[in-house]
């Protein structure tokens, strides 16, 4: 995997009239994973979007070296298409194949239109898309939402393998995320 790095310096996030957090700095090197923890509404998703470059921080700056893979509540798959076809669109754009059909339990869902999939199945499909993208920096917003215990274990293993291969992962989740060498950042400490 290519050399990657993700660093943020003195970030602040304003949502409406409310300052969600400030003086937040982080720095991640290849192989490192960070768990953003905290209750709902503390700004985990906003921070993920700021790190992804999809949202401007109110203050501070973010440096990213390497492509970003984002997993959030939107699977970005065409609702009316069978799962295999919906994923193929991203395979064409990424120039690779979505990985882990079998281990994610997607094999038997190939011909099922995305709109019939459950929350957990959509999440699994999005995980397959993310794995196929082969981006060195993974930003995961509540990756465990809707997943059953098998899929949770698989997701944790995927992230561990990604980091072992020299990737970076940021996981925003209010649920516990089990992984060796995971640093934890409590957003509440930066909240006002």
């Amino acid at each position: 995997m290519k050399e990657c790095r993700l660093a943020a310096h003195d970030l602040a996030c304003l949502r409406g009239e409310r300052l969600l957090f400030r003086h937040l700095s982080l720095s991640l090197f290849p192989g490192e994973a960070l768990h953003l923890a905290g209750p709902n509404g503390i700004g985990k998703s906003s921070l993920i979007r700021i790190l992804a470059g999809l949202r401007r921080p109110y203050a501070g700056d973010v440096q990213r070296d390497g492509a970003i893979g984002l997993l959030d509540e939107h699977p970005a798959l065409d609702e009316h298409l069978p799962l295999a076809k919906a994923l193929r669109f991203w395979e064409h754009l990424d120039g690779s194949t979505a990985a882990g059909w079998d281990s994610l339990g997607l094999e038997r869902l190939r011909d099922v239109p995305v709109r019939y999939l459950s929350t957990g199945q959509r999440k699994r499909a999005a995980l397959a898309r993310l794995a196929g993208q082969q981006a060195p920096i993974w930003l995961l917003d509540e990756p465990l939402n809707g997943l059953d215990s098998d899929a949770v274990a698989h997701c944790e293993r995927m992230v561990a393998e990604h980091c072992a291969a020299g990737g970076i992962a940021v996981i925003a989740s209010h649920q516990p995320f089990t992984m060796a060498g995971l640093t934890r950042l409590m957003l509440a400490e930066h909240a006002l």
Binding site: A52, L70, L77, W90
Partner: peptide, 17 residues
């Protein structure tokens, strides 16, 4: 609107499209 809601534009932006 459907592409915006379903996160397509976010994913495209991350891929430099």
């Amino acid at each position: 609107a459907p592409d915006m809601e379903q996160g397509f534009f976010d994913q495209w932006a991350l891929r430099g499209i």
